[in-house]
């Protein structure tokens, strides 16, 4: 279980997040939604220690260890152009190595498995700079999987993907979650997609957690409009709510 307890993040005296408390059970998939600037990414940054925060992020009732307990897929990952896909995925083994240690055969094997899982074996030697958006996103996810951390934090993992590839990537994650009990926390702008995959949605606004519940309860016009504005409509599909944009004027 991963928990944010009274986590507050401040930038230059301005409170960007918090205080926020959120617990995610083992094997649960939680979607974090909210408008731009709501603090979704910052909440994840706090969990991996890339921003300073007060409060506590814990995993199984002790302080969470970045890398070992939590794998993070950032919104805009840095992908060195010349680095090969295999070498990049192997970086995911870093938390398991001491500073002076080299990767073992086991680490290389874990890297291979991650490549296989995301259908990247044929691209293992390709430089990252030559990948398409979808391939690059899969490489980043493979690196996160190679960490073998029990919690996966995904910050807009489908932002650069078309809807088909987006579903494909999320299906892979969902499959892993079911087979290996991975805990997934997923920040998303695409509300419909978030609702389709998450067990629970939490809506953040202005740094605070304002609503949480099952997708059917959170993805309603009454809940969303105060935060996203009046230009949205929620349609009811048998598989769950569909959030669609509306033009605000009939020009």
């Amino acid at each position: 279980m991963i928990s944010w307890d009274q986590v507050t993040v401040q930038f230059n005296g301005h409170t960007a997040v918090g205080p926020v408390s959120l617990s995610v059970a083992e094997g649960e998939w939680v979607g974090v939604i909210g408008p731009n600037g709501a603090g979704k990414s910052t909440l994840m940054h706090a969990a991996v220690g890339s921003v300073e925060y007060s409060g506590l992020v814990s995993f199984d009732h002790r302080a969470a260890r970045a890398g070992l307990d939590i794998a993070w897929m950032p919104q805009r990952p840095v992908l060195p152009d010349d680095m090969g896909v295999g070498d990049y995925v192997l970086l995911g083994r870093t938390p398991h190595l001491t500073y002076l240690q080299a990767e073992s055969a086991h680490d290389v094997e874990t890297m291979r498995r991650a490549l296989q899982r995301l259908d990247l074996v044929d691209l293992a030697r390709r430089p990252l700079g030559t990948l398409s958006g979808g391939e690059a996103q899969r490489a980043v996810l493979a690196r996160a999987l190679a960490q073998e951390a029990p919690v996966l934090l995904l910050d807009e993992p489908t932002a650069s993907l078309d809807v088909g590839h987006a579903v494909e990537v999320l299906d892979v994650i969902d499959d892993l979650r079911r087979k290996e009990g991975l805990t997934v926390v997923f920040a998303a702008h695409d509300l419909t997609l978030a609702g389709r995959f998450a067990d629970r949605l939490v809506l953040m606004s202005e740094g605070r957690l304002v609503v949480e519940g099952p997708p059917a309860e959170v993805l309603t016009e009454a809940v969303l409009k105060p935060h996203y504005g009046p230009s949205i409509r929620v349609l009811n599909d048998p598989d769950g709510p569909v959030v669609v944009p509306m033009r605000s004027t009939n020009a």
């Binding site: 940054h45 991996v48 220690g49 890339s50 260890r65 970045a66 890398g67 070992l68 939590i70 993070w72 950032p74 990952p77 840095v78 992908l79 060195p80 680095m83 070498d87 990049y88 970086l91 995911g92 870093t94 938390p95 190595l97 500073y99 080299a102 960490q147």
Partner: peptide, 18 residues
């Protein structure tokens, strides 16, 4: 090896426990 890890940026290297 750590210099290779740093090539993906401070934030991501930090998130890998470095």
């Amino acid at each position: 090896r750590l210099l290779d890890v740093l090539s993906i940026g401070d934030d991501e290297a930090g998130a890998l426990g470095v």
